[in-house]
Simulated assay, not measured.
Amino acid sequence: MNPTGLQWFKSSYSNNGGACVEVASNLVTARGVVPVRDSKDPDGPALAFSASAFASFVEAVKRGEFGAA
């Protein structure tokens, strides 16, 4: 994945000292892809998920399916 031109953001809930991920939302509507990267390594690799897979993940997190960190 070429990270040029991606608009990365962190969740407003990310106040845990930097241990979080960033999501580039500008490809979601354009291509149906959700790029995700480690906020501590912005030049490192990014994973790409389908929008539906990422939405399922977010809903599972909201339901507490992964337990407390």
Rank of each mutant, 00 (worst) to 15 (best):
F57W: 09
R37P: 02
L27C: 03
F9N: 14
D43H: 15
S56E: 13
A19K: 01
S25V: 05
S50F: 11
A48G: 11
F54W: 11
G32Q: 13
A55G: 11
N15I: 12
S12I: 04
D38Q: 04
G17W: 00
N26D: 06
V21H: 00
Q7N: 09
A53D: 15
W8G: 08
K40G: 02
G44C: 09
A51N: 05
V61D: 03
A51S: 15
V23T: 09
N15W: 06
S25T: 08
L47T: 06
V61I: 10
V61G: 10
Q7F: 04
F57S: 05
A48S: 08
G18H: 04
V21P: 02
L27N: 06
V33A: 09
N16K: 05
V23H: 00
F9M: 11
V21I: 15
A46C: 07
Y13N: 02
A46Y: 09
D38P: 01
G5Y: 03
A51I: 04
G17L: 04
V36K: 01
N26E: 05
P35Y: 07
S14F: 00
V21K: 00
N26R: 06
S50K: 02
S11P: 08
N26Y: 13
G5S: 09
P42Q: 12
A48E: 04
D43Q: 14
N26C: 14
V21Y: 03
S52T: 15
P45L: 07
Y13T: 00
V21G: 01
A53S: 14
R31M: 04
N26F: 08
E22D: 01
S56F: 12
E22I: 00
N15G: 12
N15L: 06
S14E: 00
N15T: 06
P45E: 07
A19G: 06
V36G: 04
S12E: 00
R63C: 13
G18D: 06
A60C: 12
Q7T: 11
V28T: 11
P45M: 10
F9D: 13
V34W: 03
L6S: 12
P45Y: 13
A55V: 03
A19L: 01
C20D: 03
N15Y: 01
A46L: 07
K62V: 02
S25I: 02
L47A: 14
Y13A: 00
A51E: 11
V58Q: 08
A53Y: 12
N26V: 11
T29E: 14
A19T: 04
F9W: 11
P42K: 10
V61M: 09
D38W: 05
S52F: 05
E59Q: 09
S50V: 12
V23A: 02
E22N: 07
E22L: 00
G17Q: 03
A53I: 07
A30M: 06
V58M: 08
T29W: 09
K10R: 14
P45K: 15
G18Q: 09
G17T: 00
V28R: 11
S56K: 05
